[in-house]
């Protein structure tokens, strides 16, 4: 405030006077109340015995951590979460890149088809999950279609295998988000300099060589963004898995968030908070090396 009052007309304004620090207060307040404090509490409550059973909240030390890590369910959930995230990252990028290459040219048809592939992105994830659950039931539409193609009755329980269901659910997740990856790859392809492609063409490079040696390396920034968001985003996944399998069959798709949800529902709030802290740490630990590696790839540009 004092700095403002001392302003005299015509005096050269420094940057500091132009943007007094207190202008930050409204934004900072929102940031603190809605982001810093909840995150801080995520840390604090993890070390207490907060539950729905009593009103007092006492400090419990690392009790929650020891009991969680001695329990196999947490480690299983961590494993499932990681496998799921890797599967989604691979599938979503493969689908997205494939679509981008197919729909690269700006024709009228391609524009319409791109919109069609983007629709799932703006659909509710729960709706997507429930639709696929209905499609993939043993007496669902997919088996019916397969049955009428082969002429025999097909009753494959797509969501009933303790080995393959996680792949099926990852495909659904990748299907929902592939439109977004496609969009980003399309934008990446557009930024590639026409001259380079033309030069390669004149040198007699085949389409495959051009993709492998020129276009794909030049897509590095798009790959960074797509892989990082798919990998880290799907580690926080919940809605699609909950809607399709609820963590089943036999706990083989029970991701950490589903486990957290179940623990919270039992009234064990502190334990659930501890798990979300573990998830937070895991995402952080994974995010730095992955993004660092992907950024390094961009250095060739």
């Amino acid at each position: 405030m004092a700095t403002n009052l001392s302003l005299t007309k015509g005096a050269p304004r420094s940057r500091r006077q132009d943007h007094p620090l207190w202008f930050l207060i409204p934004a900072l307040a929102i940031l603190v109340v809605f982001f810093f404090v909840p995150t801080l509490f995520n840390f604090v409550y993890a070390f207490t015995d907060w539950s729905s059973f009593k009103s007092a909240i006492n400090f419990a030390g690392v009790d929650n951590f020891t009991s969680l890590f001695s329990n196999g369910t947490l480690l299983n959930s961590l494993k499932v979460t990681l496998i799921y995230a890797v599967l989604v990252a691979i599938l979503q990028n493969a689908f997205g890149l494939g679509l981008a290459l197919l729909l690269e040219r700006d024709t009228r048809v391609n524009r319409a088809v791109r919109v069609a592939f983007f629709v799932p992105v703006i659909m509710s994830a729960l709706a997507v999950g429930y639709i696929f659950q209905a499609l993939l039931k043993p007496d669902g539409a997919l088996n019916w279609i397969l049955g009428s193609l082969t002429g025999a009755e097909v009753t494959i329980p797509w969501l009933g295998s303790t080995t393959w269901t996680i792949v099926v659910v990852a495909v659904v997740h990748a299907w929902k988000w592939m439109g977004l990856s496609m969009l980003i790859y399309l934008a990446g392809l557009k930024t590639i300099n026409e001259d380079i492609l033309e030069a390669a063409h004149l040198d007699g490079a085949s389409r495959w060589t051009m993709f492998r040696s020129i276009r794909f390396p030049l897509l590095a920034p798009a790959v960074t963004f797509n892989v990082a968001t798919a990998l880290l985003g799907s580690m926080n996944g919940f809605d699609i898995v909950q809607a399709t399998t609820e963590g089943g069959p036999g706990g083989t798709t029970e991701m950490l968030n589903i486990f957290i949800f179940r623990t919270f529902g039992q009234g064990l709030f502190a334990q659930a908070t501890t798990m979300s802290l573990v998830l937070f740490l895991m995402v952080t630990i994974l995010a730095f090396p992955v993004i660092r590696y992907l950024r390094k790839r961009e250095d060739v540009l």
Partner: peptide, 15 residues
Amino acid sequence: PDLYIYLADMIQGTK
């Protein structure tokens, strides 16, 4: 406790 989930896991063959 979630006895029913664990029993379902047993039927699925994971426990």
